[in-house]
């Protein structure tokens, strides 16, 4: 039987730390490195924060479902688990995303006045090896993340920061003008 875990949390910001640490604790069954664990925590934190801040917004209600499955790789001789693939699914029943393609753009945010960086989806994509998002207005959003564990042969794509720098500088100019 494939190893899995499922949990449901209230969409409250104090659960962000619990959620990312719970997924990281489950990931331990695939013998991850510290840097892989840190990538998992960051990506989960982004998805859970999105659900709390955007899906449910100001409403003090709502639940977030987190489901993980572990696909292990076994060492040939010893049979020990040396890594594998962690699948993470984070689902809410909130307001949904109006324009998913736009939401995926670095620095795009619908809450510009609230110090949102607009980098959540970019971080998830950079820190994971697989990413998809499905959303329906009024029904909710499901984010799927896939993280390969073990083996230095997995190269993570590096983010194209040239576009990011442009956006940040734009932000700086806007600030100078406003000030």
């Amino acid at each position: 039987m494939q190893n899995y875990m499922k949990l449901e949390i209230a969409a409250r910001s104090e659960n962000e730390s619990f959620a990312r640490n719970a997924v990281a604790a489950f990931a331990l069954c695939l013998a991850p490195s510290l840097s892989e664990l840190s990538d998992i925590k960051t990506a989960v934190s982004e998805a859970v924060t999105n659900a709390i801040v955007h899906a449910y917004g100001k409403k003090d209600e709502g639940a977030i479902a987190i489901a993980c499955t572990a696909e292990p790789y076994f060492a040939e001789k010893s049979g020990e688990i040396t890594g594998g693939v962690l699948h993470i699914e984070i689902t809410d029943q909130g307001c949904g995303i109006e324009d998913v393609q736009r939401a995926l753009l670095p620095f795009f945010t619908t809450l510009a006045g609230e110090e949102r960086s607009g980098m959540g989806f970019t971080v998830m994509q950079t820190f994971c090896d697989g990413f998809s998002v499905e959303s329906e207005r009024g029904k909710g959003t499901r984010v799927r993340l896939k993280k390969k564990i073990g083996g230095d042969h997995f190269q993570l794509p590096s983010a194209d920061t040239s576009a990011c720098e442009g956006a940040l500088i734009g932000l700086e100019r806007e600030d100078v003008n406003a000030g």
Partner: peptide, 20 residues
Amino acid sequence: SFMDSTGIGFLIGRYKKFMR
């Protein structure tokens, strides 16, 4: 010990505050 993209928004917000 941990920072996600909220930290980016947080730092840029403080940057703006100090730059004022």
